[in-house]
Computed example of a mutant assay.
Amino acid sequence: MSVGKAGTESTDVVRRWRAHADDCVLLDGFHALKHALRFGAEIPLVLTSDRQGALDLAADLAPDVAGALAARAVDVPDDVLRTLVPRLHPTRVAALAVRPSRTARLAALSDTARRAPVVVLDQPRNLGNAGAVIRLAAGFGATGVVTTGPLDPWHSTVVRGAAGLHFATAVEQLSVPELPAGPLFALDPEGKDIRSYVLPDDALLAFGSERSGISPELRDRADHLVSLPMRSQVSSYNLATSVGMTLFHWSAGHEFG
């Protein structure tokens, strides 16, 4: 291939990427792309500066998506790819995915016959922590994750932290009055020990920040304040640990497919 032709193709790829970027979610790295493919995301563009390395990763770690990756992956020079993403993932893979319909996400969250809880993050601040929670929620089969406050749960750093598992659950940003119906269990140090409850499948499980806890507005909305068992003089668990412990408590007796 001539240098001129390669340059023209790179220019075309950059043009296509930028045409989609504002309306799509950045999938940063192989693992985010892998999960998006598995859970049916619409992916208009996949770029890599190491196509063979990406295909080898798929063959080794995710053969179920190897064919889809091979059909989509476009090889581009490393310096071109670095101009399109904030920081290039070590796997040297980046893709764009269409964000699922908000109507569909809200319908899943508001379904009164929910068979798994909704996780509510009240005024979260850390993008990486939010991503870790979404990854946990997807692993436990939670109906979705809702954030209140200004943090965008679809921010590229959150998607990276969740390894693309936004597409395995319903992720939405709502105000407290907009939360779906269902009994709300808010984690609070002064609450009743969570082990005294059987958490229903349609529960909302709400978590505040490690520093300030749940907001007064969410506290007023809560049906139950619950606490996690913890040794005295230990200040708190981190957010993802708290969510994982609570979802594990809910999951007792449930099967995962």
Rank of each mutant, 00 (worst) to 15 (best):
A137D: 06
R160K: 14
G164C: 03
D152G: 09
A104H: 12
A70V: 03
F185E: 06
T112Y: 00
A71E: 11
R135D: 00
R99S: 01
G191Y: 04
D111H: 10
A181Q: 06
V159Y: 04
D75I: 09
T143L: 02
V118L: 08
L165F: 10
D193A: 14
L184R: 06
A70L: 12
R87I: 14
G191H: 11
V145R: 06
V80D: 12
R105T: 15
A107Q: 12
L84W: 06
R72K: 09
H155C: 14
E172R: 08
G141W: 00
V171G: 05
R114Y: 09
A170E: 06
A116C: 03
P189C: 08
F167E: 02
F185C: 02
A142K: 08
A137Q: 07
D188Y: 08
P189E: 07
G161N: 07
L96K: 00
G144L: 07
L88Q: 07
D188S: 11
P77T: 10
P117Q: 07
R135Q: 05
P180T: 14
A108F: 02
K192G: 09
T157L: 00
H89R: 08
Q173V: 02
P180R: 02
A142F: 03
P189V: 04
R99D: 00
S110V: 05
L165M: 14
I134T: 14
A163K: 01
